[in-house]
């Protein structure tokens, strides 16, 4: 990163490629193969690019990087627009719906971090953030009121943020 900040394009290209791979592995291990994974990875790359002037070469790189990644991921989950995108693409919408129909927990396979949440919060996040259901639809599916679903999503996101902070920087 230090070399990239001096304008070394080759070093920057190689760094961004490595970052993309690391971030993908990091997110995949925590959230599973979620619908918005590629969006998250690309947004994280953009964030690193925009914040690269704040990297101090006297400090370790990974804590700086993964602090940005954690915040960006939570931001993206908060304003996840999976619904809009999947609706525009019927094939993908079908996939997204199949992903969690019946047993929403099935979609959490491999999502180590989500599996550590309270089951109702994990289900709420799984339906609204990853499978693309609206709050009202997810509420109907699970038989709770929309405001209860909203609360579960909000608490789920807060729990995810805390778990990510607690986990610290991956090695």
């Amino acid at each position: 990163m230090a070399r990239a900040n001096e304008g070394d394009a080759k070093a920057y290209q190689s760094l961004m490629t490595e970052i993309a791979t690391s971030v993908e592995a990091y997110l995949c291990a925590r959230f599973g193969a979620m619908e918005i994974l590629e969006d998250c990875v690309q947004e994280c790359l953009l964030t690193v690019h925009r914040a690269r002037h704040t990297y101090d070469p006297r400090r370790a790189f990974r804590p700086w990087l993964f602090t940005l990644v954690r915040h960006r991921t939570i931001d993206l989950l908060r304003r996840s627009d999976v619904r809009t995108r999947t609706s525009a693409d019927p094939e993908r919408a079908g996939e997204a719906a199949d992903w969690s129909v019946g047993d929403p927990g099935a979609g959490l396979e491999g999502a180590r971090l989500l599996a550590r949440l309270d089951p109702s919060q994990a289900e709420a996040l799984s339906l609204t953030k990853f499978a693309g259901y609206s709050i009202a639809e997810a509420a109907t599916r699970t038989g709770v009121s929309p405001s209860a679903m909203k609360t579960r999503v909000h608490r789920g996101l807060r729990a995810v943020r805390k778990l990510l902070e607690k986990e610290g920087t991956p090695t």
Binding site: A9, Y12, M16, T17, L46, H49
Partner: peptide, 22 residues
Amino acid sequence: RPSRSQLIEALVAELDSVRRPG
């Protein structure tokens, strides 16, 4: 959405040296 490699190429293209913020 651009592919990941397209995005990286675009970011590399607009790379310029930055001052150290530390």
